[in-house]
Design a protein around this nucleic acid. Structure first.
Lengths: 72, 72
DNA sequence: AATATATGTAAAGTAACCTTGACATGCGAT
DNA sequence: ATCGCATGTCAAGGTTACTTTACATATATT
């Protein structure tokens, strides 16, 4: 899975610290998400999409078996 | 958080077993999701939205602090 | 009455998400 | 040169998602 979190964040001129506070998570969580260390929970993905004013599907790119078989 | 998984599934005349196979998860996972016992991972939510041909935001209703502060 | 199908519960284990805290690096400003 | 800010690493621990297995219930069919 790929994510556009960093791109969207810098477009908005936000620091990791600011984003973490808006989401009410630790800054470490932002770092890990941006670096692809792990995938956000559904709720966190939703909050990110609210902040960046886009859909969840716009923020994340699902690859391979992250899609259902036969699609994409 | 509320989910429309059960409604969408029955609309499609699918059993829990069929849905679980399409998603490649256990039937127990479907039961737990439908009953609201826990929230799906982002990838699972995405797969569900593919099967039901809708957006993730259409499948799940976020409440209270599952939205960012000041919104909704 | 017995069998099949769909749905449900419970328990115990593994893996992933997320946290806190401490410390390191690069860079621009004073 | 050093101070502050933004970013990063590492490690340990808690919570939650998800699995497997086994068993229970309701309904419909034969």
């Amino acid at each position: 899975m790929k994510t556009l979190i960093r791109e969207k964040r810098t477009e908005k001129n936000m620091t990791q610290e600011e984003l973490s506070q808006a989401l009410q998570v630790s800054r470490q969580t932002i770092i890990s998400l941006e670096k692809g260390k792990y995938k956000p929970s559904l709720v966190l993905a939703h909050k990110l999409s609210q902040i960046f004013e886009c859909s969840i599907e716009d923020l994340f790119i699902f690859e391979g078996d992250e899609n259902i078989q036969g699609l994409h």
